[in-house]
Design a protein around this nucleic acid. Sequence first.
DNA 1: CCCCAAAATGCATACGTATGCATTTTGACG
DNA 2: CGTCAAAATGCATACGTATGCATTTTGGGG
Lengths: 331, 331
Amino acid sequence: MKKKSVNAMEVAKLANVSQSTVSRVFTPGSNVSEKTKRKVKEAATTLGYRPNAFARGLIMNKSNMIGLAMKDIQNPFYHEVLGKFSKGLREKGYHVLFVYTENDEIQQDEIAQFLEYNVEGVIVTDAFLSSNVVSHLHENNIPVILFNRYSKDIPCHSVSCDNYKAGKRIGEFLLDQGYSKLAFITGRKNTSTSQDRQRGFCELLQSKGINPVIEEGDYTYDGAYEAALKLLTREDRPEVIFGANDITALGAIDAAKTLNLSIPEDIAIVGFDNIQMASWPSYSLTTWEQPVDEMIELTINTLLIEMDQKGSDSKPTLVSGRLIERNTTKS
Amino acid sequence: MKKKSVNAMEVAKLANVSQSTVSRVFTPGSNVSEKTKRKVKEAATTLGYRPNAFARGLIMNKSNMIGLAMKDIQNPFYHEVLGKFSKGLREKGYHVLFVYTENDEIQQDEIAQFLEYNVEGVIVTDAFLSSNVVSHLHENNIPVILFNRYSKDIPCHSVSCDNYKAGKRIGEFLLDQGYSKLAFITGRKNTSTSQDRQRGFCELLQSKGINPVIEEGDYTYDGAYEAALKLLTREDRPEVIFGANDITALGAIDAAKTLNLSIPEDIAIVGFDNIQMASWPSYSLTTWEQPVDEMIELTINTLLIEMDQKGSDSKPTLVSGRLIERNTTKS
DNA sequence: CCCCAAAATGCATACGTATGCATTTTGACG
DNA sequence: CGTCAAAATGCATACGTATGCATTTTGGGG
């Protein structure tokens, strides 16, 4: 069985034109008469011809691919995000080269794929970049954008929720509800998301003279469960736990249930992300909704602009979101 | 700012060799002396050279890419699967071209991407292919494999859990526990997974003279919640609900909780997939574990074999899995 | 019917790599 | 040191497409 690579030449022969003309038919905005365009398209369909993306990419120095890196984590939030990125990018004519990374930090050899395949941009969600990886990409004129992460040490664009403000707003909300003993379960400590939510939350409380208890989590259900158990068995039990994300909050809910505490009477709980599960009756979690669609759109647009005019100043983009009140806080 | 495409020629000049030699250095198994290999690699590092995958793919007619198609669904099971595929394929030297589809059936224009980029194989999870799409791929010598799906109308390989046997086994188990009034909530009716689980379950029960109640779901939490409400408010309430997957079962659990039924005393519930959430204390769901790692490995290996020697007979591969007993069934 | 600008098309080349074949280098042995 | 097979390297070309430039065709006005 032979390799049947139907190429532009064969189409050209069948349509009695030159290979150039075939190429032009498949290049929008070229000068081709309607008549030959029809003729060529017909021939192409007959032979089942499709332009070879490799040859095209080689000569045009354009791959139409975007690299998408994502870390292994049990958070449905990112599954949703992945789908929306894929859809949004396709609408703009780009394809997704996907890399799943197991390390906290994107490694050189994972970037290597992106470079070899000439991706035109890279989106990183839920993972880090060391600054030399970023500069490695920048040297090759490939813009990078962090989704839901940022770092001031690393010169690249980012789009995320204004976690600091959201943390403050949540603190404010909880004080308004009359709570005075509050706790926070962190995510992985080295993530900007966790840090900012904590900082906003704590600063607001401290400005009112309240010092929240901090317990360390890692954005996983199990980690949060353990952390919540510690908090809930303190002699001085908090009245509210704010979890760094929804999964964390769900872990805390289950820990409370295990201890036969009732929610929100004995312990109130607040999460962050508004994943689908947060609305399930078993949990009905009060949480912060990130405007995912807006964030995705911003990310894609920022990246496309950056691909056009390389080297604009990198700056973090922040969106706000809003509080979703459900039944894990008193109303 | 110029396009700085460091190519093999520049490396060759720096290392005082020919471009051919540079190419050979980056082609495993070629004849190159150790000395020049070192010299070239050093020059390559200095210049930051990476072989251009497009040029390489063009001449070798080999893209080292696998197309992965996945449908939009709120099932964490597939998130896990995606990660493992990505990892497994990379270990074999392949990259992932990712396509998220919103339709039940993979469309021609989604396949088009795969063809243009010369993917060497296609993995489809949780979605369908019409037979003309499959033949379209086969015409181009691209093997396709269905993960967790199959169809006897469509001539292509597949790897899935033996859902029929598992359904039987679950029926058997529940009868052993002494239940006699059983119900099943389907997934999307047109999926082989849902059909087979239902068929195995029902056939076993019917062989014992029991007719389970069937309620229609769609593999979503909300659909299952509604379906379970219907079942649980029947005058003749079932003792057990078997949900076509874990998400379905979780929806059923929450419906039961909403009605203040206790689990498993008033109503027992069984799921399928053993997603992480099934083990969370709030649910602690009895379910069927699919041997995901084994399935992934089988899928990848089958695909690679098929890529080597095209055109072997397509046959479904089945694996078994096992029952995980937790607290939603009496022990 | 002719003329000429504009539109359409063809020709030739370039993109960066792999590889068959020719040529040179290596190194073991006589 | 000479010989010669094997190893290493270089040369030239091909992969399939896009595009600048040259050439041909088109069509409208005189």
